[in-house]
Nucleic acid binder design. Structure first.
Length: 215
DNA sequence: CACATGATCGCCT
DNA sequence: GGCGATCATGTGG
């Protein structure tokens, strides 16, 4: 029996967003670009979830690019096309969610035009006001806090639904770069510098690796 | 601080 | 049948 994954899991109440602020969605063009650029530019963007009429969300502080058919770390390596990864081939701006280790979910934002198979993994975020750093530090925790499950895989983030991305505000973040986390199996690709994070955020999923550099 | 391990299940070979 | 884009907890230095 396949387990039932729900779309109505409530987000953490500490992530309630300010309804007075003029939230502005990212345009489609933002996602139809080089995946590395999208990953970098997603730092500072708000990932938001509507639940029972209220908006919850968090500011993205860590993300990783996955480069599709040429990338041994990507689920679409060598052009693999299965039911699970099919959402990764949709047009940029869609969502790809997968289940890992039988208990955690990972959320990805699809990039590039339809048919390419590239995406950006959302690894960590900061809550509004003073939510605890641990709450959103790591891809599994981020999904748990916002109630994101595989039931959302394949949705369009620009279709007026319950999951959306809002533009960042304030000064642009100072961004660090490193190899991706947890892809030891990926051969040469495990060394590629495709992880981006906010150098000033205490919510990144792990301490900055020694090799990390400003970029 | 640095590892080491178990949990738990869908996916792919 | 093996294992993973993770996390919490435990041990030891």
């Amino acid at each position: 029996m396949t387990r039932e994954y729900r779309t109505d899991i409530p987000p953490d109440h500490r992530l309630l967003l300010d309804s007075k602020r003029a939230w502005q969605e990212l345009p489609r063009n933002f996602f139809l670009r080089e995946t590395v650029s999208v990953a970098r530019d997603l730092i500072g963007v708000w990932f938001a979830r509507r639940h029972q009429g209220d908006w919850y969300g968090a500011r993205i502080v860590e993300a990783e690019a996955y480069l599709g058919s040429i990338d041994a770390a990507a689920h679409t390596w060598r052009g693999r096309r299965t039911a699970r990864v099919e959402p990764m081939y949709k047009e940029g701006g869609h969502l790809y969610v997968f289940l890992i280790y039988g208990m955690y979910h990972c959320a990805n934002v699809v990039t590039q035009p339809e048919g390419i198979g590239q995406a950006v993994l959302l690894r960590a975020a900061e809550g509004p006001r003073g939510a605890p750093h641990k709450l959103l530090s790591g891809p599994g925790r981020l999904c748990a806090a916002l109630g994101v499950t595989v039931a959302f895989s394949g949705i369009d983030l620009l279709s007026g639904g319950d999951l959306r991305l809002f533009q960042s505000s304030g000064p642009p973040p100072l961004i660090g770069t490193s190899a991706r986390i947890g892809v030891h199996y990926a051969g040469e690709a495990k060394k590629w510098p495709l992880r981006f994070y906010d150098l000033n955020s205490p919510s990144v999923s792990k301490a900055h690796p020694a090799k990390a550099r400003r970029s």
